[in-house]
Amino acid sequence: MNEVVTAGCALLVLFGTTLTICERNAFDKLISLSVLVAGVIPFIVARGYLDIATATALIAPLSTIFTLMVLFRRQER
């Protein structure tokens, strides 16, 4: 993992964190959280933990879908 990729993934993580904290709409927060996850996964792969990267990449959308269940029920009313 060279320096450009490390700096780029760190930028993705910092952008995701700042946007998730600053946004007001819940859907915008979920989109920014997805950017944060996109920055975290290459760090796990670069360390060589491929099984953990696979499991994490499959679990992260699951928790987003759980959060969307609350928003969907609120939108129905």
Partner: peptide
């Protein structure tokens, strides 16, 4: 919901 989404950070 805001706290729940912030809790994932």
């Amino acid at each position: 919901v805001t706290r729940l989404i912030n809790l994932e950070i």
